[in-house]
């Protein structure tokens, strides 16, 4: 008889949970009704939050963790996993989310940061975390802190996919450069990436992050999702793009189909028809630098 000692919160259990989401779409929802629409459309998980990024952007003010009642309501309304956002560095919000039983915490730049120097020590938690990154160094620093999944940051709440593209290409490009280096060059690479040497060496050997890499921030159409998947994303977060559009039900289904069939333009073309208005976009270039979310997190 094997020694049957169950261990929770291991790296394998946390990272493995993200593996199960691969090829899927995770949708921002603000109530149970939207959560049901997302699940019916084939979302692989939902992100419970009080305001979608477009509204946070429009209304301003401090954006915080959602009301526990609202998170409970969403947890009780769907069978897919439920994620929720904590402010960068706000470990007490994360403790609350863990206590509520959310399946994944997003330590997110979409909310107003609580700590402008430190991120949450995610290794102390049983619940896994996903964090945003704009480049490989940032992604690896989050992994060292205990993140079990990475997403490109993009620029949330804009409907402008350009930053998601920039960040995904940068992360993938940084990884490609590591794989072409000789072992002795990896020490300097680790210094320049401001990341642990062991992780840098692991990425160089694997040719990818040791965790799942999703894309986020500005995905608004099936074509956006298909492009990001072709650029190497393992899956897609869609925030404001669905419920700020003219026909959320059809758009949600269409983005799920485009993510699944990202390499089949005939299918992406078919699902792109008759979706009504996309969310009203904001060009990232028109947003004052101080209001850009991509610079939150370090």
């Amino acid at each position: 008889m094997a020694d049957q000692e169950a261990v929770t919160g291991t790296s394998r259990v946390k990272r493995g949970m993200a593996d199960m989401l691969k090829g899927g779409v995770i949708m921002d929802v603000v109530n149970a009704e939207q959560a049901k629409i997302a699940e019916d459309a084939g979302a692989v998980a939902v992100m419970a939050l009080e305001r979608v990024p477009a509204d946070i952007r429009a209304q301003g003010g401090v954006a915080r963790m959602s009301d526990p009642d609202m998170i409970d309501e969403i947890i009780n309304s769907v069978s897919v996993p439920v994620m929720a956002k904590a402010r960068i560095g706000h470990f007490a919000e994360a403790q609350i989310l863990q206590s509520l039983g959310v399946d994944y915490i997003d330590e997110s730049e979409v909310l107003t940061p609580a700590d402008y120097a430190n991120h949450i020590d995610k290794s102390l938690f049983t619940v896994p975390f996903v964090c945003g990154a704009t480049n490989l160094g940032e992604a690896l620093r989050r992994l060292t802190e205990g993140a079990a999944m990475i997403r490109s940051k993009g620029e949330a709440g804009t409907g402008d996919v350009s930053n998601a593209v920039t960040h995904m290409r940068r992360i993938r490009g940084d990884i490609a450069r590591l794989t072409s280096m000789s072992p002795d060059e990896l020490y300097v690479a680790a210094k320049e990436l401001q990341a642990s040497f062991d992780l840098v060496a692991e990425v160089a050997r694997l040719g990818r992050l040791p965790v799942v890499l999703f894309t986020a921030g500005g995905i608004a159409t099936p074509a956006d999702a298909a492009m990001m998947m072709q650029l190497g994303a393992d899956g897609v977060f869609v925030g404001s793009g669905i419920f700020k559009s003219g026909d959320p039900v059809r758009r949600a289904q269409a983005i799920v189909q485009a993510t699944l069939n990202f390499d089949n333009p005939d299918v992406v073309a078919k699902v792109s028809r008759g979706l009504g208005d996309a969310m009203v976009g904001i060009n990232v270039a028109d947003i004052p630098v101080a209001h850009r979310l991509e610079d939150r997190g370090w």
């Binding site: 169950a6 929770t8 493995g16 039983g101 959310v102 994944y104 896994p128």
Partner: peptide, 13 residues
């Protein structure tokens, strides 16, 4: 077995 916080690994025969 519960939600993600209850996910676990274990040795099996």
């Amino acid at each position: 077995f519960g939600r993600q916080v209850d996910s676990f690994e274990i040795d099996l025969d």
